[in-house]
Design a protein around this nucleic acid. Structure first.
Lengths: 107, 107
DNA sequence: TGACAATATTACTATATTGTAAAACAATAT
DNA sequence: ATATTGTTTTACAATATAGTAATATTGTCA
């Protein structure tokens, strides 16, 4: 097994916008697909496909109860990763704000 | 600006195997493109393109010195993200190892 | 100036990804 | 048995991405 490729797969699976939103929902704990669909406002088939990508990437577990499927995240690290990405965004915003401030002063 | 989209962009930029390798080289500090190419064993044009993707994603800074370009990482968070992905891989390996052990005992 | 070296860009092809629509499944209710 | 509900899978079209080859750009040096 190639660790590099595996790391790439994991990060790629996390990186897609709809999947980020799914993971955000699962941050709270186990959730039924039927609950995710309205929250996401995406086609049911689309949600299902993104869930299957997260499954294939080994990032989520799921169990079936009757006709319903319940998903949950497998690794807390996923959220640490997402939060770090958010920190980068925050830093960017901060940098831009400072730049604006500087430009303002120089008028 | 859409934070979700930006997070997605950042993680996607990091997730590609060749770019992960580039970022691994830059972990040590600023590096010249001319040093990266032989280390990566990839086409010059390909390396250049991946660097431009990292630039566009705002993850690296670069400066020119004569004909050479020197790149460096902009955010330490990038490496925290990569290391967390590696932790997930390690956990997976551990799980598999335990499974193998269990199966071994049950023979 | 002209040649060379390092890097970036463009053009192109092959492959992957996303979203949607339609069909298939499986569990439950009628 | 048939219908219904929740979910997954398949098929397809549009778009994005990665890699390679060729070309352009820029700085340096003879």
């Amino acid at each position: 097994m190639d660790v590099l490729k595996r790391k790439s797969e994991i990060l790629k699976a996390i990186s897609q916008p709809t999947r980020l939103r799914i993971l955000e929902i699962l941050r709270e704990g186990e959730r039924c697909v039927c609950d995710m669909i309205p929250q996401l406002g995406e086609e049911q088939a689309n949600v299902s496909k993104h869930l299957s990508i997260l499954r294939q990437a080994g990032l989520v577990d799921f169990r079936k109860n009757g006709v319903s499927s319940f998903y949950r995240t497998r690794y807390g690290e996923i959220y640490k990763i997402i939060d770090l990405a958010e920190e980068i965004v925050k830093k960017e915003v901060l940098k831009t704000a400072e730049l604006v401030k500087e430009m303002g002063l120089k008028r």
